[in-house]
Design a protein around this nucleic acid. Structure first.
Lengths: 344, 344
DNA sequence: CTGTTAGCGCATTCAA
DNA sequence: TTGAATGCGCTAACAG
């Protein structure tokens, strides 16, 4: 293991000064043609690579974008991560990925680490439990990051207001739920189960809200017995549907607030001898890769996952007036498949 | 945006020297109790965080582990990434994620970037096209990384030999295929389709090999007409199965070299009016989250994804004699579900 | 166009 | 136990 060469070694071998080496390396400075080639040859000869830390210390930026999410395997997060990674690469940035598994302490720790790293941006992804503590925490994050020259991006979660020093990139969560419910309603369904998530969670609150508004628009009263809250796992979908069935609940359609719960519901329906979509129509949310694989293929609300990630990075990297507090909302659409049947 | 405070500011506020501040921050050095508290108070007061680049420049290590893979959304990669991220966090490391989308140039670029970053380890994940060019490339990577104090880890791909300066963490790829095929064979199947991947790819070559060896062990001749090669997409599985069906191929079971192709095959079977497992049994590989969601739930070869990732990080971080060229092989097992039926 | 030099923020000798 | 001084490798003035 040889000691790795520094810019001085390159300068010595090329017979020029370190400044010149630095210049040909960064590229954006006039250097005589043959000086340049001399340096480049020396670089190749020594297999020299710059020290990113020294560079970051000397200049300012670290060329790193940090991504903070619940986990890395849930398709929702994985696809957003994909968009972030893609855009980061395109912008010559590296992508640091951290997971919290829902632990606020871990999140705090990560934000601190990102300040240490001087990340260009810190992107917090996904729904949260919205309350004062959360707001306050985000405010501290935003300030701390701002001091470090970073910026905070809220991705897939609501904005904290136009004066809040963070960038927000969200999707039309409630709108998607509205569209999904309307789709069912337009097909003649009136007794529609909502398989919802934890109360207080921004993601599932918004989906419930969309459901409510669509029902209202069609002048269909919401039957509280058909609105359930649980964690959004497969098992929860299964369990809740089974419970509804056992209780003899009267419904012809299910709107599951995510695909996983929809899959669980389909399993429960099948186990009970009900056929989808003949007996019960069902629509999911998130349009995860599993949706088209289910049988029947699941109609679901499609989210612009990758676009969310890409936009988050793009906005975070764009400098200039007020670039630190923007808000964009991306659209959703229904991916129609085979799990919804018109009534009559 | 205030300028962020440095260690000097802390020292000044606490009325001590920067050396002392450095000492209480790193923790592992005797400092008088009240001096320590004075410093800590100043740190809190100023909301000071160390500059990771300055620290890395001064000391040596950067506390970063790099993960290089095809993409970030394929469950195979996502789950390995999860293991890496988990273990990295546990070892107080940050996790840098890069994707290549199969581009060797991009890979080369990433390895260079990681040398610049002085990453503690660079973990290359997943199957590759094995040839001399590849071997040579890896050798250069390993050497370059070694000089930078990093180490190269090959994860989910074969070792390049005991003398090769890299750590290898793989799973028993051929063994899994052997087990899967044997499972079908034991159930009385003899005419078994292999939905295989690109020739030359280490992952799919090994799976083909396991299939061959199992057939041989059962003294069942391999019918070349039943062995197909394609990319391992859903569509490929669909297409190839459809083609086989149209050609009137004689088979009672399918071993798909991944779950995606298995899903495609099931779709083709269903479209042709064949029932799984009544008419055709099927078994997949990778045991992705989709497997239990399919109908019928897919029996599949389960891989220790997370363990692969964790082990890669663990070995890479462990210092000492010969710690730079280790080789571990993790086991696989069959996740039994509903897509295989005993014949008779 | 090229060289000299002064930091960037921190860890780490070496003294005290 | 603490402080002063040095250097990590590089970029960015500032001269020439």
């Amino acid at each position: 293991m040889n000691k790795r060469p520094t810019i001085r070694d390159v300068a010595a071998l090329a017979g020029v000064s370190v400044a010149t080496v630095s210049r040909v390396l960064s590229g954006d400075y006039p250097v005589a043609g043959n000086t340049r080639t001399k340096v480049q040859r020396a670089v190749r000869e020594l297999d020299y690579v710059v020290n990113a830390h020294a560079r970051a210390l000397s200049g300012a930026t670290s060329n790193v974008v940090a991504l903070v999410m619940y986990d890395v395997v849930t398709p929702f997060f994985a696809h957003i991560a994909s968009g972030v990674e893609y855009q980061a690469t395109e912008s010559d940035r590296l992508c640091l990925v951290c997971t919290t598994h829902g632990d606020p302490d871990r999140e705090l720790e990560i934000v601190k680490l990102m300040r240490e790293q001087h990340a260009d941006a810190v992107i917090l992804v996904g729904g949260v439990l919205m309350n004062d503590d959360y707001r306050e925490r985000m405010y501290r994050y935003a300030k701390g990051l701002e001091d470090a020259g970073s910026r905070l991006v809220l991705c897939g979660r609501p904005s904290l207001g136009p004066d809040f020093p963070a960038i927000t990139v969200e999707y039309d969560n409630a709108g998607g739920a509205y569209a999904a419910t309307s789709h069912l309603l337009s097909a003649g369904h009136r007794r529609i189960v909502l398989l919802g998530g934890p109360v207080g969670n921004t993601t599932f609150d918004a989906r419930l809200d969309g459901y409510r508004r669509a029902m209202e628009a069609f002048r269909v009263p919401v039957d509280p017995a058909l609105v359930v809250h649980d964690d959004m796992s497969q098992d929860a979908g299964f369990r809740q549907t089974q419970r509804l069935l056992a209780a003899g609940a009267d419904f012809t359609a299910i709107f599951a607030a995510n695909d996983l719960a929809a899959a669980g519901a389909m399993r429960a329906l099948r186990a009970a001898g009900k056929r989808v979509p003949d007996d019960v129509s069902i629509i999911g949310y998130d349009d995860t890769p599993m949706a088209p694989e289910l049988f029947p293929a699941l109609t679901s609300v499609h989210l612009p996952h990758e676009e969310l990630g890409r936009t988050a990075v793009k906005l975070a990297l764009q400098r200039g007036e007020n670039s630190t507090r923007q808000h964009v909302m991306l659209g959703t659409h229904i991916a129609m498949r085979d799990s919804v049947r018109p009534l009559i």
